[in-house]
Design a protein around this nucleic acid. Structure first.
Lengths: 188, 188
DNA sequence: TTCATTTTGTGATTTTCGTCACAGGTTGAT
DNA sequence: ATCAACCTGTGACGAAAATCACAAAATGAA
């Protein structure tokens, strides 16, 4: 196991040496300064990123306010699937929340690899399954949990979020005002 | 095109005659009475359903109240992916909202088909991509839209929801009280 | 048709949470 | 070390939506 990326790939689907190498040669590393933008609203997304170090923040701009919908930490993959898949302009931004290192996968290259290798297609399917489960979990935060329960959920399941993301950033992720998070935090 | 199912499959990914037949032979039709339960909370999900007629309702039980998270209409696929994928007990229910006809795909059979056919694996990946995009859209309803905007979104994008689902059922899907939906509806 | 059941509309009241305002802390750059 | 920029805590207040209660309407079964 020579790299974080290789381990991250294997954790999604166990690939043969050949398939793994195909994927590893389809990507390149990219260092990011804090605040650097990977995807802007209005731009068509053509890339999937794997986070090796630091984290990426996905947010929407609603009436001038930023609403965070995702924080992608080490060993996670992230993209704007809607834009990537359909070629429509992205409605969100993806930005480095800290100085970071990511690996970039170009959509066209990946599609080509899917055609070449059933193993890689299977990897793609497994990655999507995992992303969908995560997404449903997060959606359920809003649908079946109260504000207090949402905070407790993050404390229990994503404690690093509290350590690495400011309370202001966290508040929109949890769908409440900054002041409300502060008050919930106090009453624990 | 001999069936609704065949059309539904082709709309996800264009399959050869052979691949399409493999899938079509892996499934069987099942008629459902209104209210009939396909998946109970606590049960491990082992099936993906395709809705030919009627609709399925996915809901969670929260302190004795039912919270609807999904309505799956004609030509849609539905499952509890988290339970299906990991074999953990399901946290939700899936039930027929009307008298319905569905096609059942057993998980094990599908996994076997993925191994046999790259085309079907590709179909699976495409289906997941579509489910993930839909799921993200619905999650964004809660994250970036006000209550009034959520209702307007459904009017615009899913008008059949208003026609086929009762206002009470809709209210939990939109994350608000029944009375609030009624009042929002009046002010339009 | 009739009657029971379910669904919807609507006012009154209460609760929750957002907004505003500001003070104190923390961080980071020079 | 200093200062500006940002972040967090907290009180006061108001707006929005939940809850409660009940009437009206729609639905469906016999």
């Amino acid at each position: 196991m020579t790299s974080s990326l290789e381990a991250g790939i294997q954790s999604i689907a166990e690939l043969s040496r050949d398939a793994s190498d195909l994927l590893l040669h389809a990507t390149r590393q990219k260092p990011l300064a804090k605040g650097q933008v990977l995807l802007s609203e209005g731009q068509v997304c053509k890339t999937i990123w794997y986070v090796e170090k630091g984290y990426l923040r996905t947010f929407y701009n609603k009436d001038g306010k930023e609403i965070n919908t995702r924080f992608s930490f080490e060993n996670e993959f992230v993209t704007d699937l809607k834009s990537l898949r359909s070629g429509v302009p992205s409605a969100c931004w993806i930005q480095a929340g800290e100085a970071a290192v990511v690996w970039e996968f170009a959509k066209e290259t990946l599609l080509e690899l899917y055609r070449q290798s059933a193993e890689i297609e299977s990897f793609g399917r497994n990655l999507l399954e995992q992303m969908l489960v995560d997404q449903e979990d997060h959606a359920n935060l809003f649908r079946i949990h109260s504000l207090t329960e949402r905070y407790a959920y993050v404390v229990r399941h994503f404690p690093q979020l509290l350590q690495r993301v400011s309370l202001s950033q966290l508040s929109s992720y949890l769908g409440m005002a900054r002041e409300t998070v502060s008050r919930i935090r106090k009453n624990r």
